[in-house]
Write a protein that binds this DNA or RNA. Sequence first.
DNA 1: ACCTGAACACCGTTCAAGT
DNA 2: ACCTGAACACCGTTCAAGT
Lengths: 223, 223
Amino acid sequence: MKKASGTRRDTSLSREQIVSAAIALLDEAGIQGLTYQALAKSLATGAGAIYWHIANKSELLTAACDHIVSHRLLSVSPDLPPKDMLRSLALELFDMIDAHPWIGSGLMQGAADMPMARIIDALGRQVSQLGVPHAMEWSATSALFSYILGVAGQNAANAQHARQHNLDRSTFLNDVASAWERLDPAAFAFVQRIARQLPAHDDRADFLAGVDLILSGLTATPA
Amino acid sequence: MKKASGTRRDTSLSREQIVSAAIALLDEAGIQGLTYQALAKSLATGAGAIYWHIANKSELLTAACDHIVSHRLLSVSPDLPPKDMLRSLALELFDMIDAHPWIGSGLMQGAADMPMARIIDALGRQVSQLGVPHAMEWSATSALFSYILGVAGQNAANAQHARQHNLDRSTFLNDVASAWERLDPAAFAFVQRIARQLPAHDDRADFLAGVDLILSGLTATPA
DNA sequence: ACCTGAACACCGTTCAAGT
DNA sequence: ACCTGAACACCGTTCAAGT
């Protein structure tokens, strides 16, 4: 697993290679697993070499996000009516977040402007096609984007927590649910009442329900 | 600015003191500014002392979030109709996020269950009062929460970016807008068209528009 | 019971030296 | 032009020694 000492890489590194290796590492080991040490090892090079191609860790993380976001957005089936497009766009993004929970952290860690612009553009086009009044195009798009980002953030937090404590998804949800059930019933009436539904609920369905809520708000207010 | 060497604190530390000092530090210097070195200095103690009262940094950050979240939730004026309650609740949370942008990071950095439960409970009670069908209570509450969390996340990212590059809010927005204008018009049609609205837009109004979108979706679908 | 502060492990980044 | 890997600065956490 260790490169022979004294050898050099036969081919030269590329930005693309580095980003791919970073993604593989992030998927395996989470955001905490992305270190220059580990990355250099998986690329069979020295840590310093990476800096020749990518300025710093923030740029690396953003590039990893952008790689996945741009590919995912291309794979959304086109030529649907705008409302259906928005739904399948949203689901594609959900599945992306679910498969790569670190994207939530990546999008919020500073300079992730490109991946954000891609998502906002994809959403905004469809919102605009939906025929919402011009004055509302931005706030509607922004609402959809914030909602998706929030779901991504929760997913990232859950994944990180589960990884740190070596929990699988259902154990994690059960833990949260029983923690909620133990809260003061007076101060946490709602959370306590809802706790039992938590382990059984379908994240993806809930996510889509939220999208539909926003969409129906959009189309119900054409004035 | 340095404590006299050889002296001990006259009073003993408390968890409350530590959390307050942490919040002050976070407000001044952002999430990157919260280090045990800086915190110990501001408390006139050694770095190790903090560990007697708080297990680790994650717990510290969560405690800081929870302190602010719980106080803010108490200050929402009660006894309004549920829809108005939800609006003022949301605005209170927005103002909280705006005043303490690091809360966005805090809520997503793992074990922030208590502050999350508080927010979800406060939202859920009102959603339930709104009379939405039982089967939708959770997804509606969850949608509102995710939306708010997404806005918080964006706020945190923007604040961090602005701080790192020493930008004020309007310079930051102008930079983003002109970066968006420079993008390929074919691939980023929407983002480019909307770019000019960005510097002038009102975050708070946009936020509330998003809340209203969700709420109107909620009340428009009573079946 | 609570604090001190040096020591440790770890990590991002730099850079002189190599090819 | 591109890579190497040791060195540096910084940071969270621990812990033996203090009071």
